[in-house]
């Protein structure tokens, strides 16, 4: 364990605790962002800058933005505070320890005897495996995402288009 790993792990740990324990929703979202960014630090230490970039772009940039939108669009007008409630400490502790045990067991059973990564990941090899070996899964996923996007737009669309207040910008 290098000092860098310990620092990143402590950051992730602290940010995760604060994410679930902070009473203000906005703070929880920002701590989650800090946690995700610390994970990117971990990826960089593992010589995987590509994964770090993806982590920044998709998780910190994307998922967090979604949550920010969720917070801003669901805020009740008037009272300022958005509060969250944590589960009772004991129950939460038991559940999270059980989950930790499950995950740790799974990870250890998978890495046991597996050879360590010899050379750092390369973008080219990732691209080759995604677009070459796993092309079908890749294309299926993109079709699935497209379908989800179209569905979301369809659900969000107002039924009666051309309401007077929407004016010229009304959908055709």
């Amino acid at each position: 364990m290098t000092p860098g790993f310990i620092i990143a792990a402590l950051l992730i740990f602290a940010a995760s605790i604060f994410t679930v324990r902070s009473s203000k929703l906005v703070h929880a979202v920002l701590w989650l962002g800090a946690m995700l960014a610390s994970t990117a630090v971990l990826f960089i230490q593992l010589d995987a800058p590509f994964l770090a970039g993806i982590q920044l772009l998709l998780y910190v940039g994307g998922v967090m933005t979604l949550m920010i939108f969720g917070v801003m669009l669901t805020k009740k007008s008037g009272d300022g505070e958005l509060r969250t409630e944590s589960a009772p400490a004991l129950r939460g502790l038991v559940i999270s320890l059980a989950l930790f045990g499950l995950l740790a067991g799974g990870i250890f059973s998978m890495t046991n005897g597996a050879p360590a990564l010899q050379k750092p990941e390369e973008v080219a090899s990732i691209a080759a495996s995604v677009l070459g070996e796993h092309w079908l899964a890749f294309e299926t996923l993109s079709v699935l995402l497209l379908a989800a996007m179209v569905g979301a737009i369809l659900l969000a669309r107002k039924r009666d288009a051309g309401a007077p207040e929407s004016g010229k910008a009304s959908p055709r």
Binding site: L30, G33, P49, G53, L57, T65, V123
Partner: peptide, 25 residues
């Protein structure tokens, strides 16, 4: 120097909106 410099630059560019949102909120 990074093999994925472009990706990291864009990633950090996307992060820039987080403090702006923090300020506004």
């Amino acid at each position: 120097r990074s093999d994925v410099g472009v990706l990291l630059v864009i990633g950090f560019g996307g992060l820039a909106m987080v403090p702006v949102w923090m300020a506004g909120w």
